[in-house]
Computed example of a mutant assay.
Amino acid sequence: MSERRIYLDPDRRDPRSRKIDVRASRWYATVTVDRDEYVYAATQHGRSAELPTAYTQAVDRARSASIDRIYYDGYSGGFVWGSGPSWITLFAQFSHVETVVEALRAAELDHDYSSSTPSPPRSLFPSTTGLPPASASLSAALISTHHHVLS
């Protein structure tokens, strides 16, 4: 897997364009939504650039479950990410990168934090305990991708 960039806005030459960057490491891929210039432009025009609470909560739960899954697979290193509206970072197994990219694209462009992907039984992956049904949040969509390797 090589590095790649997916542009979310029609004019990819516009520096304010939102992008999804995928970067491979030895054990997993880092998938990051780069909203930095988009956020800067919004605040300069008096618009709020804050992410909806449902979005940030779903991303936080998905990130936690992804990290747990990667540790379960044998990785023993650390993870680095920031908080705030400029950068959204998730970590994914290589086989689930496309699903994570699509979920982040839908969340960013369509404000869709849900998934029609059914989730396997929660007992297969302890970190999903207490999460809403798969149709209720982006995190369930992203977490469900990590279950398929267990079945």
Rank of each mutant, 00 (worst) to 15 (best):
Tyr113Leu: 14
Ser17Leu: 04
Glu3Asp: 14
Val101Arg: 06
Pro120Thr: 00
Ser116Val: 01
Pro126Met: 02
Arg16Lys: 12
Gln57Thr: 07
Pro85Arg: 10
Ile70Ser: 01
Ala134Gly: 05
Thr43Glu: 15
Asp9Cys: 09
Ala141Lys: 03
Pro133Asn: 06
Gln93Trp: 00
Ser123Ile: 00
Tyr71Thr: 00
Ala54Val: 12
Val97Lys: 06
Arg18Pro: 05
Ser2Pro: 05
Val33Ile: 13
Arg16His: 10
Ser64Asp: 12
Asp21Trp: 15
Phe79Asn: 03
Gly77Ile: 01
Ser25Pro: 05
Gly130Asn: 08
Ala141Val: 00
His148Phe: 13
Ala106Thr: 12
Ala62Ile: 01
Pro126Ser: 08
Val22Leu: 07
Ala62Asn: 02
Leu124Glu: 02
Glu108Cys: 08
His111Gly: 05
Val22Asp: 03
Pro133Ile: 03
Thr129Arg: 15
Ala42Trp: 11
Leu90His: 11
Gln44Cys: 08
Glu102Gly: 05
Arg23Phe: 09
Glu102Lys: 15
Thr56Glu: 11
Ala41Thr: 01
Ala49Asn: 08
Asp34Lys: 10
Ser127Gly: 07
Arg61Asp: 03
Asp73His: 06
Thr145Cys: 14
Trp87Ala: 10
Asp110Ala: 14
Gly77Asn: 04
Ser64Gln: 15
Ser66Ile: 01
Arg47Lys: 05
Pro10Val: 07
Trp81Ser: 05
Arg26Gln: 10
His96Met: 07
Leu104Thr: 04
Arg47Asn: 04
Thr32Cys: 14
Ser144Pro: 14
Phe91His: 13
Asp110Asn: 13
Thr56His: 08
Gly77His: 05
Phe125Trp: 13
Thr128Gln: 14
Pro10Thr: 06
Thr117Leu: 13
Glu50Asp: 13
His148Tyr: 13
Ala106Val: 06
Tyr40Asp: 02
Tyr40Ala: 07
Arg13Pro: 01
Arg47Ser: 03
Val33Gly: 05
Gly82Pro: 13
His111Ser: 11
Ala42His: 10
Asp60Val: 02
Tyr7Ile: 06
Ala42Gly: 02
Asp21Cys: 12
Ser151Tyr: 04
Arg63Gly: 03
Val100Ser: 02
Ser76Pro: 03
Glu3Lys: 15
Val33His: 09
Phe79Met: 07
Trp81Ile: 00
Tyr7Val: 13
Asp73Leu: 07
Gly84Ala: 11
Gly82Asp: 15
